[in-house]
Simulated scan of single mutants.
Amino acid sequence: MPRDTRMSRMLHVLIHMDRHVERATSERIAQMLDTNPVVVRRMMAGFREAGIVTSEKGHGGGWTLARALDQISLLDVYRAIGEPALFNIGPDAEVATCLVERAVDARMGETLSEAEQLLMTRFASIRVSDIAQDFERRFAKMKAAGEIGEAVMHRWTNG
């Protein structure tokens, strides 16, 4: 089963919007993510509803951040993408008739619920600005080491 990459991709978009693109059109974001602008508008709608971005229609319009990155947690982003399932494992949705399977399902359900709660707590403690600062450190280190040429720097800083 393929991974759900929406959260990672949207974190990428938010950091670019903060660092490199003051107002981003759906077309520009779609180009950055190699997807369709309609998909971008659908995803960004959840971010607008969560108060993370604002949008303006028409010429000169686009998406802008409504909050600073240090005011946006990973939990906020997770919720804005619709709270997808975190795990691809777990008990069957139907009630089992076998007592062994019921015991397995109960323990799996409890364990996954505990793991999900831990992850939500961790998501709440990490700010998007933490990730952006990590990018800045990595970028500076690679640039100082001569590992990043001008063409790559331009591509990275322009979406």
Rank of each mutant, 00 (worst) to 15 (best):
A24C: 04
R28E: 11
T25Y: 01
L11P: 00
M120V: 11
V53C: 04
G159N: 02
A24L: 02
V13S: 03
K143T: 10
A124D: 08
A144D: 12
T64H: 07
T5A: 15
E136S: 08
L75D: 05
G58K: 01
M32E: 13
L86C: 08
N158P: 00
M120I: 12
G82M: 00
H59A: 14
V40H: 00
D76A: 03
V95Q: 11
R19T: 07
D70K: 04
R19L: 00
P37E: 03
Q31K: 14
Q117R: 12
R48C: 06
V40K: 01
L74C: 09
G159S: 02
G60L: 06
H20Q: 14
E136Y: 00
M32L: 15
A124R: 10
E56M: 05
E147A: 11
Y78D: 03
K141W: 10
A45Q: 15
A145S: 05
E147K: 12
V53Q: 07
K141T: 13
L11G: 06
E147T: 04
L118W: 13
P84R: 03
D76Q: 08
V39Q: 10
T157M: 02
F139K: 02
M120E: 06
E110N: 15
M153G: 09
D34Q: 15
F87M: 03
D134T: 15
I15P: 00
G46A: 06
L69Y: 04
S73M: 06
L119C: 07
R41E: 15
T35V: 09
P84D: 07
V13T: 05
W156S: 00
K143F: 05
E83M: 10
M10S: 11
L112D: 06
M43R: 10
R138E: 12
